[in-house]
Design a protein around this nucleic acid. Structure first.
Lengths: 178, 178
DNA sequence: AATTTTATGTCAATAGTACTGACATAAATT
DNA sequence: AATTTATGTCAGTACTATTGACATAAAATT
């Protein structure tokens, strides 16, 4: 089982460089930036026994109060059964409330409670500050340029997510995923 | 169990805006950008039965050929037992090879094989192209500004990851995490 | 009015992956 | 000779996501 010493010819000891992958430095930076970007809220969430799924669910409900369960499923891209647990916990902890749809009483419209609003602000503040600080320290005059870049990074199929994230992230249809 | 109709006073129907969180649009864009950024390699990986852990392990080994298992553990931030499975699979599939350390024969230095190099290039190309295209379409003259911004997004504690990612991501020490 | 579809939710079984803790081996260090 | 280090493995556990089947109520269709 000791196949430790591979014959010298089979290995490569040259690192990848930007001659192989022109944007290698930015790929790496993007990875680390996102890791640290999510680390702040992750810490807060952990103390509540929540994970990123909770963060996302709470976030979107705060961004589009009154969205349906189907809308949320479409955005999160998880199964109904998975969302069920997450949503149940957020409802039990009074971060999210369900309201029967007026026109369609089958619907359970999702709204943040004051506690849910407070929590999402608490989670978002560190992220906002981080971006703000990074913009300033990297000498951006305004943040339009970064937004343009970020927007250009998103697939055309779900473009303008910030403008209308619901319609955007909703490229897949609702119902159980296969 | 039907607690669907919360009393109206407990809910909030105003969306969060940039008055609550100044960088809300960029937070969202960052989220979608990263999601799509990782979706390309994820698709390729899935066909091989691999996940992101494999991608990362393979990436770092390609970036610093000859790194030790302990180095890799430090960067990935997972336990030895978890890495074990991932590394075993990558070794069995001949994407990574282990070579006995010369000065310290306890070490199993990790190197990419030609197949491993080929795979990481295949995974990285779409990401590089995406960044490149985004830079151009958002009208950046050079990519230095984006790099500066990204670098500023990273925690000071593990700064300059692209310059020396090993030393950078290695802030935690090796051994089983607690 | 009867039937079908839709929106939501739940139960049961399974799979993947991470974790902890204990332990083993070989080689380096003291 | 004793201790520490680098690596690896086994067993058990936990969490989370998945699939599939099914249930209810309400809307839409015929």
């Amino acid at each position: 089982m000791n196949d430790t010493t591979a014959s010298r010819q089979e290995i490569i000891d040259e690192p990848i460089t930007d001659r192989d992958i022109p944007q290698i430095a930015n790929i790496e930076l993007f990875f680390f930036a996102y890791r640290d970007f999510t680390a702040d809220p992750d810490r807060i969430l952990q103390n509540l026994g929540y994970g990123r799924a909770h963060h996302r669910a709470l976030y979107f409900v705060n961004r589009k109060p009154g969205m349906t369960v189907a809308d949320l499923l479409g955005i999160l891209g998880i199964t109904k059964q998975s969302l069920s647990r997450v949503l149940r916990q957020l409802i039990d902890s009074r971060h999210i409330a369900q309201v029967e749809g007026q026109s369609d009483r089958r619907q359970r419209l999702l709204y943040p409670t004051p506690a849910g609003r407070e929590l999402i602000l608490e989670l978002s503040w560190p992220q906002s500050r981080r971006i703000d600080a990074a913009l300033k320290s990297s000498g951006f005059q305004n943040d339009a340029t970064i937004s343009d870049f970020m927007r250009a990074m998103v697939n055309p199929s779900d473009k303008s997510p910030a403008d209308d994230m619901i319609g955007a992230a909703r490229s897949e249809e609702s119902g159980d995923r296969k």
